[in-house]
Simulated scan of single mutants.
Amino acid sequence: MTSATRIRVAVIGAGLMGRWHAYAAVRSGARVTAVVDSDQSQADRLAARYPGCRAISDLATALELSDVVHVCTPTETHVPLARAALTAGKHAVVEKPLASSATDTAALLSLAASHGVFVCPVHQLVFTDGVRRAHTSMQRIGPVRHVGFVLCSAGAAGAGPGAPGRVALEVLPHPLSIIARLFPDALGHAAWSVRHPAPGEIRVLGQAGDLTVSIVVSMSARPTKNTMEILGVRGAVYVDLFHGFAVRYSGNVSRARKIAQPFLHGAGHIGVAAANLALRIVRREPAYPGLVPLLRAFYAAVASGGAHPIAPSETLAVACASDELMALVSGVRTSLRTEGDDAPGWRG
């Protein structure tokens, strides 16, 4: 295999994420050759969008028709589907979280290495223009003192009583993956505390050396948003993770700047947001910024045998931090049931 344009992709799961993965795969130069879903009519509809693509009911046939398998199914199915693909010598792109535990994640990474293939979690936010600009801006605003994330999502709306808690936990890899990329040693040395005031509501505080981290996840707060702010001693960077852009703010201090600051910030935000929207229109990127750059990098690594765009050590660091936070959330739940509603709910 010498070119990403020759890569054949099988999409497992023809729901919303499967549809976006198929679109992004084609935008990244691959061919969608197979779609697998337990709902045959849904698989038929997605396959019909791509010439030469087959809607198939069994995984084995899909594996024969593909070089890379995209797993876009519920979390509990990720490990068996990814394991089947890797064992068959196929590369795998797996929606977040890659697996339900760090142990399973490590096992998949080991299996991939033993078969000479790659397994890639969909940590696409790391590949957005906004996060990349934030990364390059850190030298200009640093040393960095704090990074904070706020994620208010409607992703659990109408999905049943257990959905808010499940979805809140499933989105945690996104901020953790950004921390792992921007601050490579932080996750391995961070001390965490968690507050879990209600299902679908998670508040995280962390510290790694001089760096502090906050993560707010809410399934009920509105408006919906997904933002990151990096605060340094010489300035700050605001990142809109929904739309994939970043704005850097100067840390210069003066009375005049203090008066003008709301106007400067507003003008900067509007200008960058407008330019970003225009660029996304040109790129034909209606949603999920970062997914196409991630897939292009992954397909290039598959085609050339080059470096994985997300190092296995980075993938495992995110999984270990996710395990730790989920354990803390579980401990808070147990504490609240045992101690009553007045319990403070912090664990760390």
Rank of each mutant, 00 (worst) to 15 (best):
R49V: 11
C53Y: 05
C53D: 01
R54S: 12
I56E: 05
I56A: 01
S57W: 01
D58L: 05
D58F: 01
L59N: 00
E64C: 08
V69Y: 04
V71D: 06
C72S: 12
P74R: 13
P74H: 11
P74S: 04
T75I: 12
T75M: 13
T75Y: 10
E76Y: 11
E76S: 15
T77N: 12
V79F: 10
P80M: 10
P80F: 07
A84V: 05
L86D: 09
A92C: 12
V93Q: 14
V93F: 08
K96N: 10
K96L: 05
K96E: 07
P97L: 07
A99R: 10
A99Y: 11
S100D: 14
A102G: 13
T103A: 14
T103L: 09
T103H: 06
T103Q: 14
A107I: 05
L108Y: 07
L109P: 15
L109I: 13
L111M: 08
S114P: 11
S114D: 12
H115E: 06
H115S: 07
H115K: 13
G116H: 08
G116D: 09
G116W: 06
G116T: 08
V117K: 07
V117N: 10
F118Y: 15
V119Y: 04
C120I: 02
V122Q: 14
V122T: 15
Q124I: 04
L125P: 04
V126Q: 15
V126E: 13
V126I: 11
G130D: 07
V131F: 01
R132G: 10
R132Q: 13
R133A: 14
R133I: 12
T136Q: 11
M138V: 02
M138Q: 05
M138C: 03
Q139D: 11
Q139K: 03
Q139R: 02
I141S: 09
V144I: 10
V144Q: 12
L151T: 12
C152I: 01
S153D: 00
G155F: 00
G158D: 13
G160A: 00
P161Y: 01
A163F: 06
G165C: 01
R166S: 15
A168I: 03
L169D: 00
V171P: 06
P173W: 02
P173E: 08
P173V: 06
H174T: 07
P175E: 00
P175N: 03
S177E: 06
I178E: 11
R181P: 08
L182E: 05
D185R: 15
D185Q: 15
H189E: 11
